[in-house]
Design a protein around this nucleic acid. Structure first.
Lengths: 347, 347
DNA sequence: ACTATCCATGTAATCGTTTACATGCAAGCA
DNA sequence: TGCTTGCATGTAAACGATTACATGGATAGT
């Protein structure tokens, strides 16, 4: 802190020009003569000048930061998307803030306040569980046009989102099991009310219907993406008189818990029961048995969300740009077949 | 963006006072008369005023943000610490920025630039792998006194750090195995050069020596905390003529890969080989068999790092405070005994 | 009663940029 | 030559807060 900070004025003095010229040399070099630009560049180098972001942001009426809302940072699925987002902004003059929805009281009013405080220019939410009241708060604050969703989204809301094709993923999973010969397929869902839960269940039911498989409600087991819910689901399956030959889990985490609980009870995977997950997190290919799952391109999700947000922020500042309202960007998924699935009764 | 922004001057006008008074009402309410404070508070409420952080930060010569440097965001171990740090700053007027060391070119010069740009007031590094040149860059920029390490640290550097008692943890692990009757204990290390690797290995060797166990170099297998290195280590163990009866892994992730690879090869855990991990991540208690491991208090690590950093930042701004240089804050660890360990030959 | 002290508040400078507007020079054109 | 146009640069006003210093009134001490 002892360092005397170098202001733009110091550079101007060193280069023998005005502060305006220095500023221009930095942001609009084309406006200047070759020679003056050179002079300023040298002066910048000599003085070791660095622009002060607080001052710049104040003047430019921006915050220079975006917020990423994460439901649960401890979940590697989310944190990888976060990493991709973060990477997208590296080198730009926008920093990435994070907030974990689970911890702390991050209500809509609170979050809208971040915009109003001039702390953020935009927001990417990985949390589709925002309440209607939160969204209303964003609308009221007039900041809704600088929010995009990634991965999850809010049904019925007109906010843009980047998401995996969850329905297609679920269909792929069912199809894969069907092709292996499975007809008795159970499903462990995500938490009730979650949009991913709905989309994946819908995809599963649709594919089931297409293949002429009957729907059995008692084989749709409610979970919540957590490890413990997977364990509970597996215990219910073990207790069943008539067991399914395959289980499609709404997330990899759940699938791990299901597999390990099944195996602990002496049920073999995949010989007795095949298991399919959703996500393809790192652990999936190393676990034993390696998990057959639906791969989401988390990097693309993060990257596209970042791109989309910047677009929206720019449009928001540009009065003559037309806001497009809800736009949904789908990212493809693919099935990765590994060892946790096999033909039924393949002992 | 259509909203006209409300400035402090508007509030002042509404309350019939000066801007200085409004500012004081917000930051030093004690200085004011009960009645004027009330008046200002009302005016704030009526106008819906929110302080502009860019302006405040500019005037106060601070950035209003801290950066957390994470080696790998996808690793839930780190992201949970990050969540704890983030939570510590919730509600304060300091925001939390993140940077993933793995992605993007985050060199020391680059990072020091964040300070110089006025983008951050301080930094918490979860990455002990910073090069000497990076540290030199911090020193050169005069910002080294606003950096603290959490979890990992840099050997020989004089920067303060918050860390788990890794040596004690390793000793607990060996002791636990010894008490179960194990004498042939292998160790899968972390990556070479990593401080945690060194500390845990040192603890293990120390306890081994204390218990009179011989040290066998061929049972110390180099890993790197990754799942794949665990798999490789397990394969080496499987190939051994004389196998250990227990394996102490330098991280839970490695332990999972070791266990699943062993089991896939027909080696039973814990009946044939017991496995101990380090970290106690969420998966550990749900995996089958549930992993015996050394629990690190990640929440405490994050919280203490945040506290320590704020302390350092305050000291850095206060010219008469004495900087204490390196201070090491140890956070206790505990052994959590689960199902992956048992007496040798307990089939 | 006079003055010193203190406290609540106002005035205005300041933080470090960006940028609208002013200026002055050079070139183009009749 | 005189006038217009355009371009490179300078001047100075924002951006929206905090805070050193000034001010004036009340209180207390002698």
């Amino acid at each position: 802190m002892a360092q005397k900070t170098i202001r733009i004025r110091d550079v101007a003095r060193a280069a023998g020009v005005s502060t305006a010229t220095v500023s221009r040399a930095l942001s609009n070099p084309d406006l200047l003569t070759e020679s003056t630009r050179k002079a300023v560049e040298d002066a910048v180098r000599i003085t070791g000048y660095r622009v002060n972001h607080a001052a710049r942001n104040l003047r430019m009426q921006r915050a220079g930061a975006v917020l990423v809302l994460v439901p649960n940072l401890g979940n590697p699925f989310f944190s990888t998307i976060l990493a991709a987002i973060s990477e997208s902004f590296t080198g730009s003059d926008t920093s990435v803030l994070i907030a974990d929805t689970a911890s702390g009281e991050t209500g809509g009013r609170e979050l809208a306040g971040y915009f109003l405080d001039g702390r953020i220019d935009g927001m990417i939410s990985l949390d589709g569980g925002l309440a209607k009241t939160d969204l209303a708060a964003f609308d009221a604050a007039g900041v809704a046009d600088r929010i995009v969703f990634a991965c999850e989204w809010v049904d019925g809301a007109t906010l843009p989102s980047v998401r995996s094709d969850n329905e297609a993923g679920a269909r792929l999973a069912v199809q894969h099991l069907y092709e292996l010969g499975h007809r008795d397929i159970a499903h462990v869902t995500g938490p009730a009310g979650n949009v991913l839960t709905k989309a994946r269940r819908a995809g599963m039911l649709a594919e089931r219907a297409r293949l002429g498989l009957p729907s059995r409600d008692d084989w749709i087991i409610r979970g919540d993406f957590s490890l413990t819910s997977g364990r509970d689901a597996a215990q219910r399956i073990i207790a069943m008189k008539e067991r399914p030959t395959a289980v499609f889990c709404a997330s990899d985490q759940v699938a791990f818990a299901v597999m390990s609980t099944l195996m602990a009870a002496g049920v073999r995977v995949p010989e007795d029961i095949s298991v399919v997950g959703f996500d393809d997190i790192d652990l999936s290919k190393v676990y034993t048995p390696a998990l057959t799952t639906i791969r989401q391109d988390r990097h693309a999700l993060g990257r596209e969300a970042a791109r989309l947000l910047l677009e929206r922020i720019a449009a928001s500042n540009d009065p003559l740009a037309t806001q497009e309202g809800a736009c949904i960007e789908m990212v493809g998924v693919e099935l990765v077949a590994r060892q946790s699935t096999a033909a039924p009764g393949a002992a």
